[in-house]
Amino acid sequence: MRYLLKRLVTTVLVLGGVSILTFSMTALTPGDPAVAALVEQTGHQPSEETVVAFREQHGLNEPFPVRYADWAIDTLGGDLGQSYSSEQTVASMIGQRLPNTVELAAASMVIAIAIAVPAGVASAVNPGGRVDYAAQFGALVGVSMPNFWLGYLLIIVAALWLDLFPVAGSGGLDHLVLPAVTLGSGMSAVIARLVRTTMLDVLDAPYIRTARSKGLRERIVVYKHALRNALVPVVTIAGLQLSYVLNGAVVVEAVFQRPGLGTLLVDAIFARDYPVIQGVTLLVGVIFVLTNLAVDLTYRYLDPRIDRRGEPA
């Protein structure tokens, strides 16, 4: 209980830090952010009056703490402000793009688990064997592969040569396959290593020895007894892969020209559309912090031993 309370307080502090960091990044702009934004919009150096009007319109004349407080209060109420470069609000722009990214994340997670679980189990059943060696080698290759290259490789082979899937864009299920495979296979490498480790632990446990000594078939022991228990930490820790998904979505969406949060962020960066940049960055940070919290708490709940082992800082 004390831990829970402490964890919640830290989370709130971190969320505060995330919002300050997100908001103050505008200050990194070389020169005046208002001028930089206007240059991107109009393509030429703005006049003095335009800059003054722009600052007035977007409330940029207030001192920094006041602007931050205004923004933070609006944000808590769900209002992320007005985009500089389009007529839409930031919240509605995010609302339009978010489902595409969630769809991609979910599909790639399914693919990742579909590859990782069998591979990890096969590795753990005979550690040090050929299958294990091949799977571990494959996992290392997967981790090392830049997903922008894997994306193009899939486009060349599956879309251009074999003509199985569309090259880019978004739409039905067929548009989802290549991006999800790109993102999912990289992720599967990390998860497979995890499945292997936890399976090795579980296969060593006394109840597995009991099951074996009862004369149960090896397949039943492995799949029914061991895997079920090994999957508990795996599923929770797979949640931590969210970082990989969010990092990867930025690049994969760019490769396949899918309208999602990643492409929204990249476009906003090039347009110097600060409210959009802040909105997306904040959302990503908040999602990530809350998932970590959820994973942490679930894990602790599922494995009470963690408490006694002492708490990682």
């Binding site: 969010l246 990092n247 960055t281 990503v284 970590n292």
Partner: peptide, 10 residues
């Protein structure tokens, strides 16, 4: 608290 590449990108 941020996925590294996203923060570096921004």
């Amino acid at each position: 608290a941020f996925p590294g590449i996203v923060l570096a990108l921004v």
